[in-house]
Design a binder for these strands. Structure first.
Lengths: 128, 128
DNA sequence: AACAAATCAGTAATGATTACTGAAATTATA
DNA sequence: TATAATTTCAGTAATCATTACTGATTTGTT
């Protein structure tokens, strides 16, 4: 039952911590393969899931149908570029009181909220 | 090139307008089958997509990995119940100025935002 | 070193969604 | 109203992301 060390999991964690671009499982797989050429895609999925459950990663869904992962587990917002698909961190302060505001007109318990912006990112503006 | 009438599409539109619970394609399929026993799931997907492109529906992603659809195309927020999976409309006012606020600290064009709450809905509180 | 348990690589299965195909329905035209 | 042109359909196959399975390999413990 105890968690055992695995070099693959360490590599995935290292890679995730070095990234600010919220990779998907497939993207992690592609990169880790440079270091571990015969790592399995299933191993990547399993460890991303495990690390998420351990609270070392957070799963991000920005509306493109893919699961993105983020080693920054603090509450912060994201931007999704409709042009290139990039997922970018927003610098703005989180609206912590919004759960309370929403609760006033809602019958139920609000535990969290997710705010995602979308549009065209700085790199894609010249092209469009 | 012109759009032609189809009773299946009308039925799907009618059904969607009668609903406030943001059905998925599969859910629409199950219900429409009462009226059209041999409608195809592909037809449902195609028409939901088409109606969305025509602006008669909006596609909603609340983080459960499924595409939900809503005949209310106005900007409004949703709640996702982690217990039963229900997608519920929020009554709160939209924060229209938030795109402008976010723009101040972001390099790019913010076209829209999506705010989704999650937790436990009123019906599920007694059970938990 | 030897054992038990977790993890792995590789592969198969799943579930949602999309694409394909020949038949049926709809609209336009004669 | 018959016919032709085009869209839409039902049914099925394919795709894509993700999850589950299996026997072999690693890891932590005695």
């Amino acid at each position: 039952m105890a968690l055992k060390y695995s070099r693959q999991r360490e590599a995935i964690k290292e890679f995730m911590m070095s990234r600010k671009d919220h990779p998907t499982a497939d993207s992690v797989y592609m990169h880790i393969r440079n270091e571990y050429p015969n790592i399995s895609l299933g191993t990547v999925y399993r460890n991303l899931q495990l690390l998420t459950e351990l609270g070392e990663l957070q799963k991000i869904r920005v509306g493109d149908g893919l699961d993105h992962f983020d080693a920054d587990t603090s509450l912060h917002y994201h931007f999704y570029c409709n042009e290139c698909g990039a997922v970018i961190d927003m610098n703005m302060d989180c609206i912590r009181e919004i759960n309370d505001i929403a609760s006033k007109t809602f019958d139920g318990i609000i535990e969290s909220h997710n705010l995602t912006f979308s549009g065209i990112c700085g790199k894609c503006i010249p092209k469009s």
